[in-house]
Design a binder for these strands. Structure first.
Length: 420
DNA sequence: TCTGGGGTCCTAGGACCC
DNA sequence: TCTGGGGTCCTAGGACCC
């Protein structure tokens, strides 16, 4: 017997998240100006070379300001733009508060990012007979309790719900059920489709595919041939075909951990590069131990001042979660690939995880795992309890470098990235 | 003071084995 | 007298998302 279950999915997206949250908080603190009503952006620190637009207000969008572009450019487009620095601890709080409200309505929630969640209301007609009314209730709750607006997209799969929430903003509810595809989604430009990015869009235009409808009705054979598996994916999406589950976020297994940083100055010597790498290893390996995993692949990435990016990775014979081991591999990889040209950005990534509940000793290894493991554990505990700055390796003293590097640039924010 | 940081997935090519 | 071919693993890089 095959049961056809009709699903009901909401995608809820905080409007201009960082900016709205910043605006709501500032009003709460007594500030007069509502950032949402003027051309404004949340942007990184230009002095330390993090000067890009993180979020823009709707009035800023009218000046053609895009997320990710330089603040320098944004100012050129709109000289009066208000630029405020980010406060990540605040955004984490807002995100959690929003998701806490969602939990009052359904336990089936997937936090897709800091400002977006999928909510599954399938087979809950007895509880919520009118989904439009339900969406309005949730939307108003957030506005009243938390002071910011959201868009809600409703459909019977995640893709369409997500596309729907991206329709007219802010503070709106939209549906996009399969029978509405032709009217609501097919006229949209191909760039509006999930998984069509800046590399794929021009290639599609070359095939004279300009709208989502053009793609939905194109010859699948040609798409498969030209875009391989990606062709099938975007063809399905254009036709509204997508069936992934709303997965509760705490059951999603983590595949990799990485931290990277743009250094405030150009690095031109090995000693400084190693120090930056060590501080990245400290952050990455603490997150790894916190996730109760060991890794078997370690990689280093480098971006030069020419912005050219390259990386080297190594598969390990023995899985590890040791800061020292990971740092050793990282230095080995770095020393083998770096030819001495100035460095702007460095990264450390680890993948291919396995469970950390035993350690396989190598006969050739002189490394004292027991001792190292105890040391890592103690240092982790101190940092969790008293903050990342509480204990650090002496080489960072007077170095001008942070002892734990990567993440969101606020030293004392505890393990934000492992919460999401 | 022009270009962040955190992820996931896929592909192509080379090494190596049978 | 001319280099098969399938499979797996590893690596580097690129695409996409937020």
């Amino acid at each position: 017997m095959i049961y056809v279950v009709s699903r009901l999915i909401f995608h809820i997206d905080a409007n201009s998240a960082y900016l709205s949250w910043e605006a709501a908080y500032r009003l709460q603190q007594g500030e007069q100006l509502d950032l949402r009503l003027v051309p404004s952006v949340v942007g990184g620190d230009e002095k330390s070379r993090h000067g890009i637009v993180l979020t823009k207000s709707i009035p800023a969008k009218k000046f053609n300001i895009h997320t990710g572009e330089t603040l320098y450019n944004a100012r050129a487009k709109c000289p009066n733009i208000v630029i405020v620095p980010p406060r990540y601890w605040l955004y984490m709080k807002c995100s959690s508060a929003m998701n806490k409200i969602f939990q009052e309505y359904t336990p089936q929630i997937q936090r897709f990012s800091v400002d977006e969640s999928f909510l599954d209301f399938s087979n809950m007609e007895h509880l919520y007979s009118d989904y439009m009314k339900l969406a309005a209730t949730i939307k108003e709750r957030i506005k009243k309790d938390l002071g910011f607006t959201v868009n809600i997209g409703i459909s019977n799969n995640k893709l369409l719900a997500k596309v729907a929430s991206d329709f007219k903003k802010p503070d709106r509810i939209h549906t996009l059920f399969p029978h509405e595809l032709e009217k609501k989604m097919w006229p949209l430009p191909i760039e509006d489709l999930f998984m069509v990015g800046r590399a794929t869009a021009p290639k599609l235009h070359n095939l004279n595919i300009n709208t989502i409808g053009d793609l939905a009705n194109y010859d699948l054979k040609i798409l498969n041939n030209k875009f391989k598996s990606h062709g099938q994916v975007i063809y399905n999406y254009a036709n509204g075909i997508e069936s992934s589950e709303v997965r509760k976020s705490n059951y999603i297994e983590i595949k990799g951990i990485g931290n990277s940083t743009t250094i405030p100055f150009d690095v031109e010597d090995k000693v400084t590069a190693h120090k930056v790498l060590l501080s990245l290893c400290e952050t990455v390996s603490m997150r790894l131990r916190n996730s109760q995993n060991c890794c078997t692949v370690v990689s280093v990435s480098i971006r030069g001042i020419d912005m050219i990016f390259y990386s080297r990775q190594k598969k390990l014979i023995v899985a590890t979660d040791s800061t020292r081991k990971i740092y050793e591999i990282v230095c080995y990889l770095f020393d083998n690939v770096w030819k001495g040209s100035p460095i702007r950005h460095l990264g450390v990534h680890i993948t291919d995880f396995c469970c950390n509940d035993f350690y396989q000793c190598s006969l050739l290894d002189t490394f004292n795992y027991e001792k190292d493991s105890k040391l890592n554990k103690v240092v982790d505990e101190i940092r969790l309890k008293y903050g990342h700055k509480a204990i650090s390796k002496s080489c960072f003293i007077h170095s001008g470098l942070s002892a734990m590097c990567g993440g969101i640039g606020e030293d004392d924010y505890p393990l934000m990235s492992s919460i999401l």
